[in-house]
Design a protein around this nucleic acid. Sequence first.
DNA 1: TAAATTTCATACCAAACGGTATTTTATTTA
DNA 2: TAAATAAAATACCGTTTGGTATGAAATTTA
Lengths: 193, 193
Amino acid sequence: MARQREFDEEKALDAAMQLFWEKGFEATSLSDLTSRMGIQRPSIYSTFGDKKGLFEAALRKYTSSHAAYVRTNLQTNSSVKEAFRAFFENMVAKEYEESPKRGCFCINSMVELAPHDEKFEILTREHQMYLSVIFQETIERGLRSGELDPGINAKGLAQTLLISLIGLTVFMKSRPERPFVDNSVKEILTLLR
Amino acid sequence: MARQREFDEEKALDAAMQLFWEKGFEATSLSDLTSRMGIQRPSIYSTFGDKKGLFEAALRKYTSSHAAYVRTNLQTNSSVKEAFRAFFENMVAKEYEESPKRGCFCINSMVELAPHDEKFEILTREHQMYLSVIFQETIERGLRSGELDPGINAKGLAQTLLISLIGLTVFMKSRPERPFVDNSVKEILTLLR
DNA sequence: TAAATTTCATACCAAACGGTATTTTATTTA
DNA sequence: TAAATAAAATACCGTTTGGTATGAAATTTA
């Protein structure tokens, strides 16, 4: 044993996450990272391997905390319809406060990296699959309680809601007028009859 | 007047479009561009200004041809439901043949550039708005013919279909299993009752 | 045919890139 | 306290980046 680490690895990783989330992989330079993370280049390389390794660690941190956020969010409300409504509306409201519009780090990575890097193709797909399972379980809860129409296909509907969520998230990056998005949210939620 | 141009500007621009579409703005270098466009650096700069100018020209070329494609595609079929079904299914089928998954150049740009560059925020938003108008007009045609439920809100439904299309396009970049996407398409189209 | 003009090709530029070797500083163990 | 070890800081590396200056080649107009 010898000298002890002076920086907090989790805090440094969080700073990197914020940066990659906002600017993406290519547009974020090592200089950006060192200044925002508050550590020197060699510390990054000794701790995370290389730039891609750091990005991967940041994305994993994001997906795990995002998954937890979605899960608790959908479980708190006893009404399933109300839970989804609050979840979608909250997501829209939050994004309209953002500037620049960061959207979802995982979706951003899906667009920038997944098509050219199998590791990120798998990582992003698995996160989306996990979200669709959370959606499905929530819908199934609504079916058991009798709140939802028994004719509903839980899995199919979950997948559709997830795709709508992705579409909303991406579309908001172009700063469309609010009613456009609000109306779509309403319409999408009618699938939860 | 003097020496005449040796390269075809449209062909060169098309080559640039393919490259930017596949790799995005940041990941495409001037060297990539010169070799694929078949012309030298100075020709690019004298013709298109700079890298961003070339990208913008390429994106404009894409959006105008894409808009025309969508318009004719939705107008050919007399049945509106059938037109949308064919359009969505065709789009999914085409994307599953692609490798790497290029998705939609406009959507890719919305994710990479729109949040940090107002010019692209506007450009991408306006293209989406245009698409939603095409959708809306198609739905209104179905309302007039009596094919669609008169209770349908043409504008709202058009916007929702557009957002679903965006979600599908982006999601396919992570190479999800085909049934996931196919089921969602079916479910989305049920909104066209 | 000669002057004028524009394109093309080569070569080049400073700056920024991702990544490391090296030295200094701090802490632990023997 | 001395040797060993690991982290921090500085300085540096070759390569690639986007962007140009320059001169040769070609076509027009006068």
